[in-house]
Simulated scan of single mutants.
Amino acid sequence: MPRTPPTAARTTVRAGTTLSFTVAGTGPTVVLLHGLAGSSREFEPTMAGLMPGYRVAALDQRGHGRSTRRPADVSREAYVLDVVALIELLSPGEPVHLVGQSMGAHTAMLTAADRPDLVASLVLLECDAGPGERDQVAGLGRYFASWPVPFKDAQDARTFLGDSALASAWLADLEQRPDGLWPRFDPDIMAACMVPVTAPRWHEWQSVAAPTLVLYGEHGMFTERQKAEFITARPGTRRVDIPGAGHDAHLENFPAWIRALREFLECAQHPSRVGAVELPPLAAGTADP
C-alpha cells in the first residue's frame, strides 16, 4: 500500500453533532465514507493512492471514529445530511466524486439520489438497495458487545480480533485510555444505525443520476443473484469484481481496488476519453446503456 499522506483531523458541527474528517491533496474533490464500525483511518491508503491528482476527504460518520460517539439521531437522513454538510463545506458550488463502502456506500447512494447537484460520480463498494431483513443487525450488535474491552494492550486485542485485514484496521484505530484500549464506537449505536439500512431503497437507487461504479469482493457478503439484481435495476451502472477479496475489498486487495477506482474517476472526469482509458473488465451482469 502507498504511504499514508500527511493529514490532520478537522471538525465541523451539524445540528449539535461533531463530525471529524481528514483532507489532503489538490485537484477535484473525492469524499470517502467508511462502513459500519470503521473510521476514516482505514481509507488513508486510498487517500494516498489517489494523490497526486485529487483532493481527498475521509469522514468519520456519526457514531464512529472521532465524531460524536453517541449521536441522538442515527437515521439514514441524518447521515445523508452530514455528508451534504461536508461537501458544501469543502467544495461549495462544485460537485464531488463520492465513494463509500458497505454502510458508507449506502449513505453515498442516498446522498447522490437526494442531492444530484452535489455528486459528479458515485462509487459503491459492497452495496445493495437494502435486504429488507433485520436478522443480521441483532447479530452484529451481539458481536460488538462480546468484545472483552478494555483490551490490555495491542497483543491482547490482536489475540481476540484475529489477523484479518479488517481486524488490523480495528486494531490501528483503538483508543488508548488509562485502563486500556477501547474501540471508537459503542455496540448499541452500531446496531441502531444499521436498522434503517435494512429498509429497501430501490426507488432511490434507480433515481441516481451520476455515473456510477459498483464493486464487489469475489467473496463478499452478497450472493450473485443479489449483485445482479442491484446492477440491472439501474441501467448504465458499471460493475467490477475484486478477486480474492471479501466485504472489505479496499483492505484485502488494495491494488485492484485503487486501480479500478482511479480508472473510473479518470473516465468520470473525461467522458470523451473512455475509449483511451483501460477500464477494468466488466463482470457478468453489468448493465450498460
Rank of each mutant, 00 (worst) to 15 (best):
M1S: 14
T4I: 15
P5K: 07
T7Q: 12
A9P: 10
L19Y: 11
L19T: 09
S20C: 14
S20W: 02
V30D: 14
L32N: 03
L32F: 05
L33Y: 14
L36M: 11
L36I: 13
L36G: 12
L36P: 10
G38N: 01
R41F: 03
E42P: 04
M51R: 06
M51P: 03
P52E: 10
P52C: 10
R55G: 05
V56D: 08
D60C: 04
D60Q: 08
R62I: 09
G63V: 02
R66Y: 10
R66P: 07
R69A: 15
R70S: 12
P71F: 09
A72C: 03
D73H: 10
D73Q: 05
D73P: 06
V74D: 06
R76S: 11
R76K: 13
A78V: 06
A78W: 03
V80H: 03
V83M: 07
L86R: 06
I87N: 02
I87L: 05
E88P: 01
G104A: 00
A105D: 03
A105N: 04
T107S: 08
M109H: 08
L110W: 00
A112T: 10
A112M: 09
A113P: 02
A120S: 15
L122D: 08
L125G: 13
E126K: 05
D128A: 07
A129V: 12
A138R: 15
G139K: 15
Y143V: 07
F144Q: 07
A145R: 11
S146H: 05
S146W: 06
V149W: 04
K152M: 15
D153P: 12
S164P: 12
S164F: 00
A165Y: 01
L166V: 11
A167C: 04
A169F: 00
D173M: 06
E175C: 12
R177I: 08
D179V: 01
D179R: 02
G180R: 05
W182F: 15
R184H: 09
R184Y: 10
D186P: 07
M190G: 08
A191D: 08
C193A: 12
M194S: 13
V195H: 05
V195D: 06
Q206T: 14
S207Y: 06
V208H: 04
V208C: 06
V208D: 07
A210K: 00
T212C: 09
V214A: 12
G217Y: 01
E218W: 04
E218Y: 06
G220M: 09
G220N: 05
M221E: 15
E224Y: 11
Q226M: 14
E229V: 11
R234P: 15
T237F: 02
R238D: 13
V240D: 02
D241W: 00
P243Y: 00
A245C: 10
G246I: 07
H247P: 01
D248R: 04
A249M: 11
A249G: 04
L251M: 04
N253G: 09
N253A: 12
N253Y: 08
F254I: 10
A256K: 04
W257G: 01
R259E: 15
F264C: 01
L265Y: 00
Q269W: 01
Q269I: 00
Q269V: 01
Q269H: 10
H270S: 13
H270T: 13
S272H: 08
S272G: 08
V274D: 02
V274A: 07
A276R: 09
E278F: 05
P281Q: 10
A283W: 03
A283I: 01
A284E: 15
G285E: 03
G285Q: 01
T286I: 06
D288W: 14
